[in-house]
């Protein structure tokens, strides 16, 4: 094992330029992919923020006894799609209207009777905040006899769905294209490193080194280059994010799990690239 480490270190030392070049290439191709990832993460977050507001509101008939509402509320909370249910009384509704709709404050002040109905405000779990599930929940709420009307902003929830689908499709297509380009570039870079040492590989074979032995330093080298490149890409992404966040618009960065997966993916691509290149080379010599 110490020999493998030594040979790997030597490879970096003997060809510093090529090593630096391949690490830089790996870093930049992962950086491009990472930038795309940042855009995707932020779009996702924004859509998530908007989806926060998906809420199904069931307006209650006037005079519904509070016990009935409480029971129904517990019932609705047990729906698999539902995160939580808030009971808004008529007084709460009026207070909220006074607060939210300041331009109509005077009208609300002068009222003798409260025209606003009580309601159950039903918030859905994040994965169910789409038109289909909102409609299903709305239908079930309508079946309660004391429910007067149910609203969930059908039109904009459908728009949100459409936006989500488009964003998902674009992310999948563009993301895989970027990933493919990164893999091809990294593979080529590593192949160059292997070719540069083809003579060494040939001599190792002639003196009776086993294929496994020959492969190991290259695999370690590929893995290291991939990891270092991945770290570089991470740093570049962070720099780009910091600039955008400071000067352009508030953005969010990868979670640490996402960042680790990205760096790990760099290492993996390096490892796989080396395996393929060395394997092809060993068959030829």
């Amino acid at each position: 094992m110490s020999l493998v480490l030594r040979e790997t270190a030597l490879a970096f030392k003997r060809a510093p330029l090529l090593s630096a070049l391949s690490v830089t290439t790996i870093a930049f191709s992962l950086f491009v992919f990472g930038l795309f990832g940042l855009v995707a993460v932020n779009i996702r977050r924004t859509i998530g923020d908007v989806a926060e507001r998906v809420e199904v509101v069931a307006y209650l008939k006037r005079g519904t006894p509070i016990e009935t509402v409480t029971m129904a509320s517990a019932d609705v909370e047990a729906f698999p799609e539902v995160q939580r249910v808030a009971h808004v009384t008529e007084e709460d509704a009026l207070a909220r209207a006074r607060q939210d709709l300041t331009e109509f404050r005077d009208i609300f002040q002068d009222l003798e009777t409260n025209p606003l109905p009580a309601s159950l405000d039903v918030r859905l779990k994040p994965q169910f905040r789409d038109a289909r599930h909102a409609a299903a929940v709305a239908d079930r709420l309508r079946s309660y006899p004391f429910v007067d009307d149910v609203r969930y902003g059908q039109e904009w929830v459908e728009n949100l769905d459409r936006l989500r689908n488009i964003a998902g499709a674009v992310a999948a297509v563009v993301g895989s294209a970027f990933a493919l380009v990164a893999i091809i570039i990294i593979g080529t870079t590593i192949r160059m490193a292997v070719l540069q040492r083809s003579r060494e590989i040939e001599i190792m074979r002639l003196v009776g080194a086993t294929d496994g032995f020959i492969r190991r330093p290259f695999l370690l080298e590929g893995l290291l280059k991939g990891l270092i490149g991945g770290l570089g890409a991470f740093a570049l992404c962070y720099g780009a994010y910091a600039l955008i966040d400071t000067y352009l618009l508030r953005a969010s960065f990868f979670t640490s799990a996402q960042a680790l997966i990205g760096i790990g993916a760099g290492g993996l691509i390096g490892l796989v690239g080396s395996t393929v290149s060395v394997g092809r080379h060993l068959r030829n010599v």
Binding site: R205, L206, V207, G208, T210
Partner: peptide
Amino acid sequence: QREIPRLRRRLGI
């Protein structure tokens, strides 16, 4: 194919 390294260790080329 796996035995080739063993042979080559007995040869000088």
